[in-house]
Amino acid sequence: YTAFGDLEVFLHGLGLEHMTDLLKERDITLRHLLTMREDEFTKNGITSKDQQKILAALKELQ
């Protein structure tokens, strides 16, 4: 049995499950992801397509 964390649930909701391992390897938490700047997305290997999905979701949360 494995409990999913906030990061996994957030990514799954956006259809971005493939990013879970990448972000965990880089010790990026959901809190960090929510406050990242555009250059940090790129530096951490997050594609512009995935970045757009994340940023759109963040706008909806605000």
Rank of each mutant, 00 (worst) to 15 (best):
E60K: 15
V9A: 14
L7I: 06
G45E: 05
Q52N: 05
D21Q: 11
L61W: 13
A57N: 10
F4R: 13
L23K: 02
G15W: 01
T2D: 04
L33G: 00
E8P: 01
T35W: 04
H12W: 06
K59Y: 09
M36K: 00
H32M: 12
A57Q: 09
L58W: 09
T47P: 13
M36L: 04
E40T: 03
T42S: 12
D39S: 09
L22P: 09
V9K: 15
L16E: 01
L23H: 01
V9S: 15
D27L: 01
K59F: 07
T2E: 05
L23S: 03
N44E: 10
F4S: 14
E40P: 01
D21E: 14
K24D: 03
K43S: 08
F41C: 07
R37M: 08
G45C: 05
D6S: 09
G5I: 05
H12E: 14
L58Q: 15
H12R: 15
V9G: 13
K24M: 06
A56Y: 13
F4A: 12
Q62T: 10
H32P: 02
Y1V: 10
E8T: 06
I28W: 02
L33F: 07
E40V: 02
D27S: 11
L14D: 01
L30Y: 07
A3H: 11
L55F: 09
L11V: 02
F41K: 03
E38I: 04
A57K: 14
R26Y: 01
D6L: 00
A57G: 15
G15Y: 01
H32A: 11
E8S: 08
E17C: 09
K53D: 05
L22A: 12
A3V: 09
L34E: 11
F41Q: 03
L23F: 12
F10S: 06
E60C: 08
L16W: 01
A57T: 07
D21F: 04
H18C: 01
G13M: 08
L23R: 01
Q62S: 09
D50C: 02
Q51H: 09
L7N: 00
E60I: 13
F10K: 04
L23I: 03
H12M: 10
T35V: 06
D39K: 10
Y1G: 12
L11R: 00
D39T: 12
R26F: 00
K59I: 06
I28K: 01
H12L: 12
Q52L: 08
K49I: 07
K53R: 10
A3E: 15
G5Y: 08
K43F: 06
H32L: 05
L55A: 14
R26N: 09
Y1W: 06
K43Q: 09
K43C: 08
F4Y: 09
F4L: 13
T29L: 02
E8K: 08
L34H: 10
R37F: 00
K24T: 05
L33C: 05
A56T: 12
K24R: 12
K53Y: 01
T20Y: 15
M36T: 00
K43P: 04
L30P: 06
K24N: 09
T35G: 08
G45V: 02
K49W: 02
F4C: 09
L61Q: 15
E8N: 10
L34S: 13
L7C: 03
G13F: 03
R31S: 08
L55R: 13
Y1Q: 05
K49F: 06
A57E: 08
I28H: 01
T29P: 04
F41E: 01
Q62R: 13
L61R: 15
D27W: 00
Q51L: 04
M19G: 01
V9R: 15
Q51C: 09
H32F: 01
L14K: 08
Q62W: 03
I46Y: 04
A3I: 09
K24F: 06
A3G: 12
L22Q: 15
G15T: 02
R26P: 03
Y1T: 10
M19R: 04
R26M: 00
H32R: 13
T35R: 09
T35D: 11
K59V: 09
L14A: 15
L11I: 02
T20K: 13
K24Y: 12
K43L: 08
M19P: 03
E40F: 03
D21V: 08
K43G: 05
H18F: 05
R37E: 13
L22E: 10
K49N: 11
L30G: 02
L33K: 00
G15C: 02
E40S: 02
L11P: 01
M19H: 09
D50I: 00
L14V: 14
I54V: 08
T29H: 06
L61Y: 07
Q52R: 10
G45P: 00
R37L: 05
V9D: 15
L58E: 13
L11H: 00
D27Y: 01
V9Q: 15
G13N: 14
R26G: 06
T35A: 09
L23C: 11
Q62M: 04
L14P: 02
L16Y: 00
R26A: 04
D27T: 03
T42Y: 09
K24V: 06
M36V: 00
K53T: 09
G45T: 03
L33M: 06
F10H: 02
I46F: 14
D6V: 00
F41W: 11
K43E: 10
D6I: 00
T47H: 10
A3Y: 09
M19Y: 15
F4M: 15
G5A: 14
G13E: 12
K59L: 06
A57D: 05
L22D: 12
T42V: 13
D50L: 00
L55G: 13
E17F: 04
G15D: 05
K59A: 11
L55S: 14
G15H: 06
L30N: 02
H12F: 03
M19I: 14
L22S: 13
G5L: 07
A56H: 10
H18W: 07
L33V: 02
Q52Y: 08
A56Q: 11
L16F: 04
I46K: 01
T47F: 05
G13K: 15
R37V: 05
T29W: 00
Q62L: 05
L7M: 13
T47G: 12
L7V: 02
I28C: 02
F10M: 05
G45L: 03
L34Q: 14
V9L: 12
H18N: 07
T20C: 12
T29F: 01
T47N: 11
E17Q: 11
G5W: 05
L61K: 14
D27I: 00
N44D: 06
I54L: 11
H32K: 14
I46S: 02
K49Y: 08
L58H: 15
L7D: 02
